[in-house]
Computed example of a mutant assay.
Amino acid sequence: MSAPERISSRSVTVLDLLSKGELTVRGRVREASNAVLFCSVAHDGEEASCVYKPVAGERPLWDFPDGTLAQREVAAYEISEATGWGLVPPTVLRDGPYGEGMVQLWIEADPSADGLLALVGGDEPDDGWKSVGLADVGEGRTALLVHADDPRLRRLAVLDAVINNGDRKGGHLLPAPDGRLYAIDHGVTFNVEDKLRTLLWGWAGEPLTAEARDVLGALAAALGDGGPGLADRLARLLTADEVAAVRARVAALLVDGRHPEPSGSWPAIPWPPV
Rank of each mutant, 00 (worst) to 15 (best):
L174W: 02
G205A: 03
R168V: 07
G205L: 04
R233P: 00
E242S: 12
V158P: 11
L156A: 15
A251I: 00
G171T: 01
R154P: 03
D185E: 09
A248H: 14
A183Y: 07
D185F: 06
P151T: 10
A252F: 02
A176Y: 00
T198P: 12
H259T: 12
G217M: 11
D160V: 07
H186S: 06
D194F: 07
S265V: 08
V162G: 06
R197S: 15
V250Q: 05
R168E: 01
G227R: 12
L216Q: 08
L156N: 12
R213N: 02
H172P: 09
R247G: 12
R155L: 12
S263E: 02
G166E: 13
L238D: 11
V192G: 01
L174Q: 00
L199E: 11
D167R: 05
V250C: 05
P175W: 01
R180V: 00
L234K: 09
R249P: 14
L237E: 09
D256I: 09
P207K: 09
L223D: 10
D241I: 00
A210T: 14
E261H: 02
D194Q: 13
E206I: 01
A212P: 07
G227D: 12
R249N: 12
L159E: 10
T189N: 13
P260E: 06
V250Y: 10
G187K: 03
Y182V: 06
L196K: 04
D194L: 03
L156P: 15
D178G: 02
V255Y: 03
G226Y: 00
H259C: 13
L199H: 01
P175R: 10
P267Q: 08
L208N: 06
V162P: 04
V246G: 09
L153G: 15
H172Q: 05
A161M: 04
V255G: 01
R258F: 05
V188K: 08
H172R: 09
V192T: 15
L200Q: 03
R168W: 01
A231D: 10
R197H: 02
L237R: 15
P262I: 00
R155A: 14
Y182N: 04
L153P: 15
R155E: 14
L208W: 08
I184A: 06
R213F: 00
G217F: 10
Y182F: 15
V215Y: 04
P267L: 07
G179E: 03
D160R: 04
G229Y: 01
G202C: 08
G257Q: 10
D178L: 01
A161C: 06
G257E: 12
V255E: 15
G170W: 07
L216V: 10
R213D: 02
G217V: 05
T189M: 00
G257S: 12
A245G: 03
E242Y: 02
G179C: 02
L234W: 09
A161Q: 02
L216A: 07
A268V: 01
K169S: 02
K169Q: 04
R258M: 13
D232C: 11
R154F: 05
N164C: 07
A248L: 10
E211D: 15
L230G: 06
A204K: 03
W203V: 00
A231T: 02
I184G: 03
V243A: 13
G264M: 05
